[in-house]
């Protein structure tokens, strides 16, 4: 009985939410259609994942949150309505402002990918170089241990001032954020490679180039991708923070700019957008992992 109730509860909540949205609102509440679309999208994904118990639980929590949000902002009307935008108003931003938003998203993503590319290139190649030479690593490791824990976000005001453009500055800071974990990971995995694999490789008399390309790189790949998963969120944090300081586009800028004009519907929408983008990036990375690491 309780189980059955648990099954249908999210769908009952969905109907309550829809009824609530369609009922008359306080003044100043805008178009409800975009929010309705979002609600239906959530319901669709719930129905699509109906076999997973956890999807049910998540659905319940999300709907309760949306009902409370909708009820207190759009139906009751709080005192500082401007500070607590109704969900209708937040999601109505997208059709109104989508050009600006997508431009911001792409501008942020371009910087992210540039940073990822550079960090991968330098992290992997320098990590290999240092890891393969005991002498270099014994000189560099103490220095690296001092520099690497400095949070790269700290550099951003200075980088913005120092480098010729904001783009260059944010690419620099993102690159640094992702570089350290990849670099350290690479050194460790080269130095602590499984002795059984190393012995096997040595008895095959593998040339140095092939050793790097066919043995060390694939051996380190899972570690590299794992550290990417961790640093994708951090680097987005760094990027948006940097955009708040000195950019004229991007999601960080979008949020900062509109909060300066007290347009909190846009601010909240920007925040939700960042959540969506980071989630999509994580999905992308786990997809890459699935394609590249079929051997585990």
């Amino acid at each position: 009985m309780i189980q059955k109730l648990h099954r249908v509860l999210p769908h009952i909540l969905f109907i309550i939410l829809i009824a609530l949205v369609l009922s008359p609102s306080v003044e100043g509440t805008g178009q409800y259609l975009p929010f309705l679309v979002v609600c239906i999208a959530i319901e669709m994904s719930l129905i699509f994942n109906f076999k997973k118990n956890v999807a049910n639980d998540i659905g319940i929590i999300v709907y309760i949150f949306l009902i409370i949000w909708e009820y207190f902002t759009a139906k009751v009307g709080l005192k500082n309505a401007m500070l607590y935008p109704a969900p209708e108003n937040v999601f109505a931003i997208f059709p109104k402002d989508y050009e600006k938003i997508l431009e911001g998203v792409f501008s942020s993503l371009r910087l992210m990918f540039a940073g990822f590319g550079l960090a991968l290139l330098f992290g992997v190649s320098l990590g290999l170089l240092v890891g393969l030479s005991n002498r270099t690593s014994s000189i560099l490791m103490p220095i690296v241990k001092v520099i690497s824990p400095i949070p790269p976000i700290i550099y951003s005001p200075y980088a913005v001032a120092l480098l010729p453009s904001f783009r260059a500055a944010s690419i620099f800071v993102i690159t640094l954020t992702i570089f350290w974990p990849i670099f350290m990971n690479m050194i460790l995995s080269v130095q602590q490679i499984d002795r059984k694999i190393m012995d096997s490789a040595r008895t095959l008399n593998i040339q140095r180039g092939s050793m790097i390309w066919h043995i060390l790189l694939p051996y380190s790949l899972p570690g590299i991708i794992n550290s990417l998963t961790v640093s994708v969120s951090t680097s987005f944090l760094v990027l948006t923070a940097a955009e708040m300081i000195g950019a004229t586009s991007g999601l960080g800028w979008y949020i900062k700019y509109h909060s300066d004009f007290a347009n909190y519907s846009k601010v909240v929408f920007g925040i939700i957008m960042i959540g969506v983008i980071v989630t999509l990036l994580n999905v992308l990375i786990s997809l890459i992992r699935k394609i590249l690491i079929r051997w585990k």
Binding site: K196, D199, A201, T203, N205, I215, L221
Partner: peptide, 24 residues
């Protein structure tokens, strides 16, 4: 040499492992 464990490289398919050995 054949060892007790892990003579093969886990990231290569079986045939790739053998082919890689031949290539050396």
């Amino acid at each position: 040499v054949v060892f007790q464990h892990y003579s093969l490289f886990p990231w290569m398919t079986v045939i790739k492992n053998v082919e890689y050995g031949i290539r050396q």
